[in-house]
């Protein structure tokens, strides 16, 4: 279980006129084990920043992030790396290593952290690529792949070590509807077969309703509403209503 308490993060401004830009403001969130929690929110509201805090890539100004009871924001670098092996993360732009081949990308953490033989690693790489619906791409370079393929390779890399918790940053943004549906089904099947805990950031409501056990809306640095897909669909909160209906007029755009 991931418990986030009072998480606050500001970034320094590049201009001299403003002092800081508070992205997360006393945010509280609980992500239960074995469920898919979806976070929705507008572009630039801090969804990626939130995920990077959970991976320990960014450090909060204050607040804590408890993973099964211990606070990862206080860990030393080596302990943090130990903790990270339980996680897999799919980045928004795929973030494949462009100096390595697809096969080397997917097998990266296995080569770094396991004592498996080269043959065993290649076997796992092939299996993970198959799982995301790709075959025979091991020797290609990331630059030779389409956007949707990159996302799928990145997903294969994220789950190469069979993580307990998978974080997805906009898994279906910028891919065609069919690939989007493949990715949605993949998230669901990982969820069901491996009982992983998933945290998915998206602003694709169709995908959110399809995969979510619970949906949380991030707005102005906080979670303003959380509930099942049904509850979110029927919410009375005008901010959430404007977001899910995609209206240009409403409380979000008024100020």
């Amino acid at each position: 279980m991931i418990t986030i308490r009072n998480l606050t993060k500001s970034f320094a401004c590049s201009t001299l006129t403003c002092d800081s830009n508070r992205v997360l403001d006393n945010l509280d969130l609980v992500v239960p084990d074995g469920q898919a929690t979806v976070i929705i929110g507008r572009s630039g509201c801090g969804k990626s920043v939130l995920l990077k805090h959970i991976m320990g890539i960014l450090k909060p100004d204050s607040g804590e992030i408890l993973i099964d009871g211990h606070d990862i924001t206080k860990l030393k670098a080596s302990e943090l790396n130990q903790e990270r092996k339980r996680f897999g993360m799919l980045f928004q732009g795929a973030a494949l290593f462009d100096s390595l081949t697809v096969g080397e990308n997917v097998g990266f953490s296995l080569r770094e952290h396991s004592n498996l033989s080269e043959g065993e690693i290649e076997e796992i790489v092939r299996e993970k690529l198959e799982l995301v619906g790709l075959g025979d791409v091991e020797d290609l370079r990331p630059a030779e792949l389409s956007g949707g393929m990159k996302k799928r390779v990145a997903l294969a890399r994220a789950i190469a070590m069979d993580p307990e918790i998978v974080l997805y940053d906009e898994p279906t943004t910028g891919v065609d509807p069919i690939t989007a549906d493949i990715i949605n089904s993949l998230i669901l099947s990982l969820q069901e077969r491996l009982k992983v805990t998933s945290l998915i950031v998206t602003h694709d409501m169709q995908s959110a309703y399809k995969i979510a056990d619970r949906i949380a809306m991030l707005y102005k640095g906080r979670i303003i509403e959380i509930g099942s897909g049904e509850e979110i669909r029927n919410t009375a909160n005008p901010i959430v209503r404007q977001f899910i209906s995609g209206a240009s007029q409403g409380p979000i755009t008024e100020n």
Partner: peptide, 18 residues
Amino acid sequence: GTMKVTEQIDALQSLAVN
């Protein structure tokens, strides 16, 4: 720098590599 702005450095960290 390219690795940094395309989140490849973050990806290294997420894969528990310094």
